[in-house]
């Protein structure tokens, strides 16, 4: 926890406004809050029980820059099981803009039925997001989806790689700013990539952590779009909880 809280502290020192964490519980959230005590931060804990499991999400925000309010869980029921789609938060920035933030942590890839579960989680989350887009609410989704950008669960979430298409269908689609992180950069074919290091059969690294945004954050004429990158913050590595922190810079 000390290592994790050091990374979180460094992310805020580097300019982060919000840090969303998965695989947390009430005790680890309390320890994190204690470690961050001297900083002017709000810590929202979403670790309630759900079905036979529990939520495991904590959102930390810099109260000088944003105000975050938890707005509730989004779930999907299938065959008697409650599937966690996402926790949602309303975010108001110091400049007066606002958006809805969804934070998702979907079922592990190690479970044989995981893919079907993740796809159902996506369908449920897509429903909640559709409600937002219908009312012209800006949306940001941060997730450890345990799926890559090109997997069908992300397609079910209507997350696409082409910002131009999102601008043409702003009430249906989200821009996946993480798509280009799923493989080595074209200029460095031997370069590292992915947010999660794991010796699988298809790769040694995967982009399971992704950031999606609605068309509100895209400016087609100015060629502006949010930028996502796997964090190179000191202390963060593939060995840190298995995942690199994913940074999203909104324009």
């Amino acid at each position: 926890m000390h290592q994790a809280s050091s990374v979180v502290r460094r992310l805020f020192s580097d300019g982060a406004s919000i840090v969303a964490l998965c695989e947390m519980d009430v005790e680890s959230a309390a320890r994190l809050q204690k470690h961050l005590g001297s900083m002017d931060l709000d810590v929202l804990v979403a670790c309630d029980r759900v079905g036979k499991s529990r939520w495991d999400i904590v959102v930390v925000s810099d109260r000088q820059r944003v105000r975050c309010e938890g707005t509730g869980p989004q779930t999907t029921r299938h065959l008697g099981t409650v599937i966690r789609s996402a926790q949602s938060f309303d975010v108001l920035t110091a400049s007066g803009s606002s958006f809805r933030l969804y934070v998702a942590h979907w079922r592990s890839r190690l479970g044989s039925s995981g893919h079907d579960w993740r796809k159902r989680a996506a369908i449920g989350l897509c429903k909640a997001i559709s409600d937002d887009l219908e009312t012209d609410r800006a949306v940001v989704v941060l997730g450890d989806f345990n799926e890559e950008p090109f997997d069908s669960a992300l397609a079910a979430l209507h997350a696409v790689r082409d910002p131009r298409l999102v601008c043409r269908h702003p009430k249906e689609l989200l821009f996946n700013a993480s798509w280009s992180l799923a493989g080595p950069p074209r200029s460095r074919p031997w370069g590292t990539f992915g947010s999660y290091g794991y010796g699988g059969r298809t790769s040694l690294a995967y982009q399971l952590d992704q950031a999606l945004v609605s068309a509100h954050f895209l400016a087609e004429h100015e060629r502006k779009a949010p930028v996502a990158r796997n964090s190179e913050t000191e202390g963060a590595s593939h060995t840190f909880g298995g995942h690199l922190p994913l940074e999203l810079e909104l324009q």
Binding site: L79, G124, K127, D131
Partner: peptide, 23 residues
């Protein structure tokens, strides 16, 4: 699927079958 919104404001639950809706 049947979508249940509430009782908590902004809570959305998507149910894929009758048994899920009952739950």
């Amino acid at each position: 699927p049947v979508t249940v919104r509430g009782p908590r404001e902004k809570r959305v639950e998507v149910c894929s079958s009758a048994a899920d809706v009952r739950d």
